[in-house]
Design a protein around this nucleic acid. Structure first.
Lengths: 203, 203
DNA sequence: GGGTTCCGGAACTGCCCAGTTCTGTATTAG
DNA sequence: CTAATACAGAACTGGGCAGTTCCGGAACCC
């Protein structure tokens, strides 16, 4: 990313206008918005530049390609993977699950996720980032929450943690991306109460 | 589709070479294969024509656009929506679910489904067909199977049929399209035994 | 045969978009 | 001031693909 001067030369400041670093964020934000609104194909580089109030040359001076910009936009976005440390121990599985739902920072992560799908299919670099940001981290978080509940003795004895940890992410993604329905609080709470808890705790 | 002659004129057969109806199937099959292999964007009309052993003019003589061809390819495909009538009553929920899994005709429906996703996002006609073929019909089938089990007295009393009916389709779609993993028999059987049955029957 | 329709295949048009280059301007160092 | 760099915006290049048109040939009716 940044230039590393091999020698200890004092890096004499070059003349000329300095790069406006705030434009990096504007461009990344524009890319994320367009991914969420129009999907990968709809996120044209012209549209990104226009929304960021930048010229295309400025975008390409900072990212080598659309794929690289997409990867950075996803990785650097808000709503980065939550870890178990971010989930307060409420004392019950239900409380922990609700706090994950209502303790989120960003709202439209699922839109971004849906917009990335076509890029995931045909681009390994995007697929790898998607996998980490939207799949691995979420299932891992669910698994850790379930393990905490297991330590409390809340869970059924014969539970298959890997399977159960995938149920909530699967149902939320399915509703959003396949069924094309909105994922609101009502749905999530109902899912927790009628699917996750009965399955995990036996009611 | 076919011409309807308003008057009772005897529809004098026109001269000239007759249309080769077998080409319809070849074109639809080529479209389905390419959708499954390369997705909607990768299904170019040139590729469809070439694989079907046809000229592009022949394809466009029969379908007005890529969207129309896609819709027909999905609707006319094998593996059309299964109904409860196709599922033998095995006497147990587990048996019924397994017979759905192992009684299927086509194998790569999930590939086709994944290939359609990008078209679903940006085309209402494709979205409507997708919704009916891959979402409504599957959840409805699951719900009917659950209701049959309920009539047998196999289910928990407090079950939420709509929610539970969505779990299996959601987990299968998620594994295939989001997690990017293969959906094999081992996975489906494990899902049935560790998720669906515990959830529906209480174990 | 003669007229008509379909065929595969290839050439062609028109559009969109990633990526590049140019133009005129603004900002900085010396 | 001059030289160097960044900027927004517009023009441009090149490739891919949907959809169209044309060609020579084949199949069919009379």
């Amino acid at each position: 990313m940044s230039n590393v001067e091999a020698t200890q030369a004092p890096v004499a400041r070059r003349p000329g206008r300095r790069r406006d670093d705030s434009k990096d964020d504007a461009i990344l934000a524009a890319a994320r918005e367009l991914l969420a609104e129009r999907g990968y194909d709809g996120m044209t580089m012209d549209a990104v530049a226009e929304r960021a109030g930048a010229g295309k040359a400025t975008v390409y001076r900072r990212w080598a390609s659309k794929v690289q910009l997409t990867v950075d936009a996803v990785v650097c976005g808000p709503g980065s993977p939550m870890s178990i440390g971010d989930v307060p121990d409420t004392g019950t599985l239900r409380g922990d699950l609700l706090s994950v739902r209502f303790g989120r920072k960003s709202s439209d992560q699922s839109e971004l996720m849906a917009g990335l799908m076509s890029a995931v299919r045909e681009n390994p670099e995007v697929a790898a980032v998607f996998q980490e940001q939207f799949v691995r981290s979420r299932v891992a978080l669910m698994r850790e929450i379930l393990e905490r509940a297991q330590a409390r003795g809340e869970l059924r004895a014969d539970i298959d943690l890997d399977m159960v940890a995938a149920v909530a992410p699967a149902m939320i993604s399915y509703r959003k991306m396949v069924a094309g329905q909105h994922v609101d609080d009502e749905f999530v709470v109902r899912m927790i109460d009628t699917v996750i808890l009965p399955l995990a705790t036996g009611a």
